[in-house]
Write a protein that binds this DNA or RNA. Structure first.
Lengths: 83, 83
DNA sequence: TCTTATTTGTGCGTATGTATC
DNA sequence: TGATACATACGCACAAATAAG
């Protein structure tokens, strides 16, 4: 799942994978993405790595984190699309 | 924000900047300094560098780390002034 | 209110590889 | 060779918010 030989670091690969799921509608707006524990299990990486991957998506405005709840896909209404 | 040309290494500059905020009262005793993530964003340096900067302030007794909470400005009451 | 479970937030310590001075 | 810095990654401990009972 994660290619540790290539030039793309794991945290970027994970960010890309999650972004693809969001873009494809697999994880629609308002929905939660898998928890860090589940992602740990799925990708076989440390939380630190997931934290960085999530940070990338947060930076892009694709997701938002809520302590005690999870990480949610930002809805178009909430998206900073300039309006 | 960080001068990478001068003789003062970034971790020292950051330590100085934080020390100034504490001295000026911008971050009063008992208050938390920005998290490492926020400082990463603000200064544009690696976590490794931030941790060294914080270590300087800890060495000076200006701040204390509380696990799971953050890094706090030491209160005069708690200062190791010999009491 | 308290306990239990889940989930994110925050920092510590450590390690590897690369690069500059 | 050493200090400094960046990028990446793993494992660990503890705190806070949320949810359910």
């Amino acid at each position: 799942m994660i290619d540790r030989e290539g030039p793309v670091p794991p945290y970027r690969q994970i960010a890309n994978a999650l972004r693809a799921r969001i873009a494809s509608g697999e994880i629609p707006p308002g929905r939660r993405i898998p928890s860090l524990v589940e992602l740990e299990d799925e990708f076989g990486v440390a939380r630190d790595t997931l934290r960085k991957a999530v940070q990338v998506l947060k930076d892009e405005g694709l997701v938002e984190t809520v302590t005690g709840m999870g990480i949610y896909v930002v809805q178009p209404d909430n998206a900073p699309s300039g309006g």
